[in-house]
């Protein structure tokens, strides 16, 4: 049973969420073929996918694929599924993976499930567990078609590194110009920062921080922890922080090992974005703040006093 894994890259490096996708596939099958796009990815990165369980890497190195064009990517992936005979496609449920997988599902007549949180159960049929109601519940669903596509949520599989190197083969997909009808004219992306959806630790601030000028202490704590920064919806609505940091029901859904919420009340819509975090720390001056009910560790106190002390204590404990 061969499995195709669509692998995304950023700044020439394979994205962490894609390594999880490779690890997920490797946990189901020994025949894992990774597919990478564009000519701006390092060859060593591609060979290195062998360490995570890929047996072969297809490289669609057309320069036109350097940008994540949804239609074109869907076509390349569908062609790769056909030429490799892969019945299963695994990819990260990312801002690119999700819209691409929907088109692939139609092209290949596959069953598609997104937000998959666990390895499949193949004891009778092919079933997976997916997150629903924005993390408030799960559904166990059966994929009834022969071909199957799984868009996996962060932490659905454990990434293990072993020895290994994958053979890289060029993959030529003839693409019609119409595949590029939607043109990306500009990309505006933070570089060098830990990306929020992929972060293992997130430090998040809410309206309790009073204003954008007070984010220095949040950034400092995040830096000390190697964490990404997040915020509540009013904070991005008021443009104290950029929109892509907004966590919750209508924003980014995170699943880090540690989520630290500072000056956030814990409205149900905010919790919807953080409820799959492994550990939650809440710092709030109001002992009645609802967030404490969803927390593992809590401190009642003024953020302006607690946060600098916490940063200092973490530095001291290193």
């Amino acid at each position: 049973m061969s499995i195709l894994v669509f692998v995304e890259n950023a700044d020439g490096q394979v994205k962490k969420t894609s390594l999880e996708a490779v690890a997920y596939a490797a946990a189901i099958s020994e025949d894992v073929i990774a597919l990478a796009m564009g000519n701006n990815i390092d060859q060593s990165e591609l060979e290195g996918l062998g360490k995570y369980g890929a047996t072969k890497v297809l490289h669609a190195d057309d320069e036109k694929l350097n940008q994540g064009i949804i239609q074109a990517y869907a076509t390349v992936i569908s062609k790769a599924m056909e030429s490799t005979g892969a019945d299963i496609l695994v990819l990260a449920n990312s801002s690119l993976g999700a819209p691409v997988s929907a088109r692939v599902a139609i092209k290949t007549d596959a069953s598609l499930v997104s937000n998959v949180v666990d390895l499949p159960d193949t004891s009778a049929g092919f079933k997976v567990k997916r997150s629903i109601y924005t993390g408030k519940a799960f559904a166990n669903v059966e994929l009834t078609k022969d071909k199957k596509i799984l868009a996996i949520k962060k932490n659905a599989a454990e990434v293990k590194e072993a020895d290994g190197s994958a053979a890289v083969e060029k993959f030529a997909a003839d693409l019609a110009d119409s595949e590029f009808d939607a043109k990306i004219t500009n990309t505006d992306k933070a570089t060098g920062e830990v990306l929020l959806p992929e972060a293992e630790i997130v430090v998040s601030g809410g309206r309790g921080l009073k204003g954008p000028e007070n984010w220095g202490m949040i950034e400092e704590l995040a830096k000390e922890l190697g964490a990404a920064t997040g915020c509540s919806k009013p904070v991005s609505d008021m443009e104290w922080r950029p929109h892509h940091e907004h966590v919750g029901q209508t924003g980014v859904k995170v699943s880090p090992q540690l989520y630290i919420a500072i000056g956030i009340s814990g409205a149900i819509q905010h919790l919807a974005g953080v409820n799959s975090s492994k550990n939650i720390v809440v710092i709030n001056k109001d002992p009645e703040a609802p967030f404490f009910k969803a927390a593992d560790y809590g401190i009642v106190g003024d953020a302006f006093e607690v946060v600098p002390k916490l940063t200092e204590a973490i530095r001291a404990a290193k």
Partner: peptide
Amino acid sequence: ATKLEKYEMPPAKGEVKMIDA
């Protein structure tokens, strides 16, 4: 293309540990 088998609730959250500021 899919069939629902069963819904499931996440496991209940344990007690929060409070730490002095």
